[in-house]
Design a protein around this nucleic acid. Structure first.
Length: 259
DNA sequence: AGGTATGTTAATTG
DNA sequence: GCAATTAACATACC
């Protein structure tokens, strides 16, 4: 279930449980999760080491293992599980720590990836990821510059990981819903105040969801997310929630107040 | 049985 | 070169 806020929670979970323990063994249960990395190289790079710290960039998680960093991407169904007894059903890679505990990277659909990278900066550069919208040095000016170079519909731009890294289908819809902008508005028709509203709303939203979820709470009722269904009543204006498609992704919006 | 699912990439078409 | 579209990846659920 991973967009930026979820990966931020995974990252905190990783940091809370899985640092500073010697990795006694690396078990790759399904090699497809490694991408083009080989099982032998992957295991050899991590075995005997320990994770010193974690970093997140967009939807990507990195864990420092000394020579190299472990890189995790969670696809649609990735998750982490730290446990002592029974591994999760869809565990694809398991790190056995010498403490007797285990960290599993699980991913039912295997759209995610677990591999190695020299460091997060290298990965971000190689994959042309845009800035993380919650990074301390990410600002409105930068957001404007990056958006100004794009064409096409606004939702596609928000979801493009090269523009900004971390927003996916749900939070793109939610951001546009909260800013009253139609997901199919051509991005070059947005006026400066709308771009600013997207910037501010998106960051507030991402932070709020992190806080909300880390406190174990559900999405607020006034969000679009819990009302993502054709024919639902818009909790903001009483309009009707409609469905369309953008970039092959199901898109919900309020037909009354999103223009 | 068919449609859908919080993601990404490659190939194709305009 | 860019944007839109389609397919592919793999699995479960309703």
């Amino acid at each position: 279930m991973p967009e930026l806020p979820e990966v931020e929670l995974y990252s905190r979970y990783f940091a809370r449980h899985a640092l500073h323990q010697r990795i006694a063994r690396v078990r790759v249960l399904d090699e497809r999760i490694l991408g083009r990395e080989t099982k032998a190289k992957f295991a050899a790079a991590l075995r005997g080491r320990s994770f010193a710290r974690v970093r997140r960039h967009g939807k990507h998680l990195f864990a420092d293992a000394g020579e190299r960093w472990l890189h995790l991407h969670f696809g649609m169904t990735g998750d982490l599980a730290y446990y002592r007894d029974d591994p999760p059903r869809f565990a694809r890679v398991i790190f056995d720590f010498d403490t007797g505990a285990h960290l599993a990277f699980e991913d039912m659909r295997i759209f995610g990836i677990a591999d190695l990278t020299p460091d997060p900066e290298t990965y971000v550069a190689e994959h042309r990821l845009g800035p993380d919208p919650l990074a301390a040095d990410f600002g409105l000016r930068q957001f404007r510059e990056r958006i100004a170079r794009k064409r096409g519909v606004v939702k596609a731009v928000l979801m493009s990981q090269e523009v900004i890294a971390g927003v996916g289908n749900l939070y793109a819809d939610e951001t546009l819903y909260q800013t009253s902008i139609h997901p199919k508005r051509p991005v070059d028709t947005l006026d400066p105040s709308e771009v600013k509203a997207i910037f501010t709303t998106m960051r507030t939203l991402l932070r709020a969801v992190i806080a909300q979820k880390s406190a174990g709470r559900d999405y607020p009722h006034r969000y679009l997310i819990p009302n993502r269904d054709t024919g639902e009543r818009c909790p903001r204006c009483g309009g009707t929630i409609q469905r369309t498609t953008v970039q092959q992704r199901t898109t919900y919006f309020c037909a009354r107040h999103q223009k």
